[in-house]
């Protein structure tokens, strides 16, 4: 359930991150829209403080998107919610491959048709770009934290060593048999 929420709201954030060239009032309306609760397939979702903060940081860095882009992004946001509702999914595990592809396609669609560029990556992250095409950030959709162990190579080596032990043990058993 947690992952599902993250996925939906990362998607909402990515899509709505584009609503930036609006007056102060519209930005307030946007924040209200983002922070309100959504009920999809009986499950209640609400944006986290971290996601809200990311949005505010994006707005501060990108003061300028056309109103037509805003409208387009709004349409895609509604489409995203409709796709999830139609799927009947209540967790990320319920989403079929085709549904996930539809959601990813929406992000690509927004990128292709507006000044907001966001690309879904195969590692579970979505890269969001500033209007000047520099990277604003990689938003992790599937997990919150990075793996901070510096000994990854050692883990691989110990796994290989373990395989070696198993092979040798097998051979010695045969020899003893």
């Amino acid at each position: 359930m947690g992952n599902f929420k993250k996925m939906i709201f990362a998607l909402l954030c990515v899509v709505v991150l584009g609503l930036t060239k609006v007056n102060a009032m519209s930005i307030d309306e946007l924040k209200d829209k983002l922070t309100k609760e959504y009920v999809i397939n009986g499950v209640t979702f609400q944006i986290t403080n971290a996601q809200k903060n990311s949005l505010e940081q994006y707005i501060a860095n990108n003061p300028g998107i056309t109103e037509s882009d805003i409208n387009y992004i709004n349409e895609k946001l509604d489409e995203a919610i409709a796709i999830i509702e139609k799927s009947g999914a209540t967790s990320v595990d319920d989403l079929s491959r085709s549904t996930k592809d539809e959601l990813k396609a929406l992000i690509t669609d927004v990128s292709n048709n507006t000044a907001i560029k966001a690309t879904p990556n195969n590692d579970g992250t979505v890269t969001v770009y500033n209007l000047d095409n520099t990277v604003f950030g990689k938003i992790n959709v599937t997990r919150d934290v990075e793996y901070t162990d510096s000994a990854i190579v050692i883990s691989l080596a110990s796994a290989i060593a373990l395989c070696g032990i198993i092979v040798i043990a097998k051979n010695s058993k045969k020899a003893n048999a």
Binding site: A157, S158, I160, A161, C163, G164, I165, V167, I168
Partner: peptide
């Protein structure tokens, strides 16, 4: 090969 890998990995570790 497995034995060589084992000792190489062990040495590396």
């Amino acid at each position: 090969f497995a034995i060589a890998f084992f000792f190489a990995s062990l040495f590396f570790c």
